[in-house]
Design a protein around this nucleic acid. Structure first.
Lengths: 229, 229
DNA sequence: CTCCCTGATATTGCATTCATTTTGTGACTG
DNA sequence: CAGTCACAAAATGAATGCAATATCAGGGAG
């Protein structure tokens, strides 16, 4: 595995004070989302302990949590591995996420405030700017933030949490799809439509557009993955 | 807290070999689902250690996992408490579950096999028998199994997992609603309709009926909770 | 009498240690 | 030469120990 470094620039930073436990969970998850820890790779506790400067106890607690969240796979007496993700697991994730997108659309359209519209409108604007400038990393991060914000507008904290969990699991494939620039353009135009539906506060329309957006992202990802290997 | 005993009869038993970690998570979750550990109650590690005959290390790992699953709440340096559930948290759970019910309906109607129909038909039949005999505990368990089975028919393991997580969180309120016998009768007739839609393999209809079933259960629970205190 | 402060006690967070299991290596046998 | 067995090294699972923090009782000030 060699020397691993934590990159903080691909996901919005977590806010404020966090316990060691939360920090560990968050940083290890980040390692996997970024691909620093590769899929199926063994996770030696000792090395991570040195890396984070903690003992095995809190690290193991973090691993158990990450196992529940589906990021790592624990094999009794045989250590943990980064949850290997075969293409067959992508579709179920998107399928479930689609159901959440729909609920987000239905509820966000009803509960959105002017303040929300301003905030997410700004994000949308930034997305457009990043697209024009071809800043794909920036676009990717903003895209994540956009959907996260939309979920928050739903006003359902549990929905947000669940949704973000799925987003993070998918995020690990992001790099595969990022290459597909034409999809990024399409994606942005879908965002335009989403913003229109959100401003119009039309639940069914917004839900349908989010579902469609989700479906197309899934298809693009599956296509990209089929092409690579 | 005194002497606590684990009852195994309200939830289907977990199957087969399980590591100590899994056992602990499972049994502690059961304590909370059954209400043996009351909401908001403090969870002293020492007592649970004696209770399960393990040291603090594996117990703490289990607590962290249960925190992720929403069953306990960890307060830094101040120990864990059984996640207090105010009525305001019930609706979001059902709202999210509704989205999953819909997806289950859509997919199950398309993917159901004859074998599935036989198995879930048998469960449905048993439900009817339990209702006639007034065996409410039995009805409750079968009801849980029925919906779990339906989720499995969707063929989406992640959906199943997420769904069951929500079901378990709601299960803690079960005792409140159990009293409401008229609702149980209504609930069963809704199950009849669900079975019809499943046999007919009509996705939209099944989805709508599951959503409605979920909504009515939610309403009944909220009513029951309002009446109690 | 109430409120606040202080120190003893209990509990938590993490490190360390011990026991068990797995893994890797090498010699031995067929 | 391949396969297997045995043993050593490493890694995991769980218990214990220690420092830091919170809780609680009692006393004193207002």
């Amino acid at each position: 595995m060699g020397d691993l470094e934590v990159r903080d620039d691909l996901l919005p930073a977590d806010d404020g004070e966090a316990s060691l436990h939360e920090t560990l969970v968050s940083r290890m998850r980040q390692l996997m989302i970024e691909g620093t820890l590769e899929n199926g790779q063994r996770i030696p506790e000792a090395e991570l302990c040195r890396m984070f400067g903690v003992s095995r106890t809190p690290l193991r607690e973090a691993l158990k949590v990450l196992a529940v969240q589906g990021f790592v796979q624990l094999r009794p007496n045989r250590g943990a591995i980064v949850a290997p993700i075969d293409p067959d697991q992508i579709q179920p994730i998107f399928e479930l996420k689609g159901a959440l997108e729909r609920l987000i659309g239905l509820t966000a359209a009803e509960r959105v405030t002017q303040e929300d519209l301003d905030a997410i409108g700004a994000l949308h604007h930034e997305l457009g700017a990043a697209l024009e400038l071809g800043q794909m990393d920036e676009y990717t991060r903003l895209n994540y933030a956009f959907h996260k914000r939309l979920a928050q507008i739903s006003g359902n904290a549990l929905l947000c949490e669940t949704y973000e969990g799925l987003q993070q699991r998918i995020w690990r494939y992001r790099f595969v799809v990022n290459e597909d620039f034409s999809r990024v353009a399409d994606s942005f135009s879908e965002h335009e439509q989403i913003m229109i539906a959100l401003r119009a506060k039309t639940p069914l329309d917004l839900a349908a557009r989010l579902e469609a957006h989700n479906r197309r992202t899934c298809e693009a990802m599956l296509r990209a993955i089929q092409q690579i290997p």
